[in-house]
């Protein structure tokens, strides 16, 4: 078990980080190249001003008509997205491991906040899962991959919570925690999770179209 953990938290972690980073860059690069070849308007109309205006708007909770129409989903969604990014990056245990390996550290979340954040992530996922099942318009659009993605995101957080509480089988769970976290990281560029890094580009382009061509709001 120790060997498996050491392997998972060592070489395998490198693999997943490289797959994540290279995957994101490759996909962005490919899209940028494709756009240059076949979507000339993307470059012609992209405007920093209107792109940022739109991105900014859509990052303000309740800042758009769409959000105001779905207040619960908006609140859950914002809390979820904030937590899902902040908790892993600023968890003390993660920063400590990084410090021990590379001597570099950064600000960390208080344990209470990290704990609450983890619950927010899991509760958010339960909400999204429920929404997919219950709302007909979402259910119709949801395939097995959409549900699987929610589970994939849930795994590292659920196992982390489990290990934090020293639940039964904590050794296996910790191994699972590391492996599922790595799987999640490596999956980002190749699944719909890629919305994480594509958001600013899509939003920015539509913001530019609406701002500089259509002279209208896109929120």
């Amino acid at each position: 078990m120790t060997k498996a953990y050491v392997f998972a938290a060592g070489p395998l972690l490198w693999v997943s980080v490289i797959v994540f980073a290279a995957g994101c860059l490759l996909r962005l690069g490919r899209l940028a190249w494709l756009a240059r070849k076949k979507d000339r308007p993307v470059y012609a109309y992209m405007s920093a001003h209107y792109a940022l205006r739109s991105i900014g708007r859509w990052l303000v909770p309740m800042g758009t008509e769409s959000m105001r129409k779905h207040p619960v989903t908006t609140v859950v969604s914002f809390a979820f997205h904030a937590a899902v990014v902040l908790v892993p990056l600023f968890l003390f245990a993660h920063v400590l491991l990084f410090y021990e390996a590379f001597g570099i550290s950064w600000w960390t979340l208080p344990e209470e906040a990290a704990y609450a954040g983890t619950l927010v992530v899991l509760a958010g996922l339960v909400y999204f899962f429920a929404r997919r099942l219950i709302r007909p318009e979402v259910r119709y659009l949801s395939g097995p991959a959409d549900f699987a993605l929610l589970v994939l995101v849930a795994l590292p957080f659920a196992t982390g919570l489990w290990a934090f509480h020293h639940g039964p089988g904590v050794r296996v769970v910790m191994l699972l925690h590391v492996l599922s976290g790595e799987a999640l990281l490596a999956a980002i560029p190749f699944t719909k999770l890629s919305h994480m890094f594509l958001f600013p580009f899509l939003r920015g382009y539509m913001g530019s179209e609406f701002g500089s061509v259509r002279h209208a709001r896109d929120w």
Partner: peptide, 16 residues
Amino acid sequence: GARLKAYVKTCMSCGL
């Protein structure tokens, strides 16, 4: 092109 791929593949099927 890029828009076709990005639009279809980024849709999170959230139904909003």
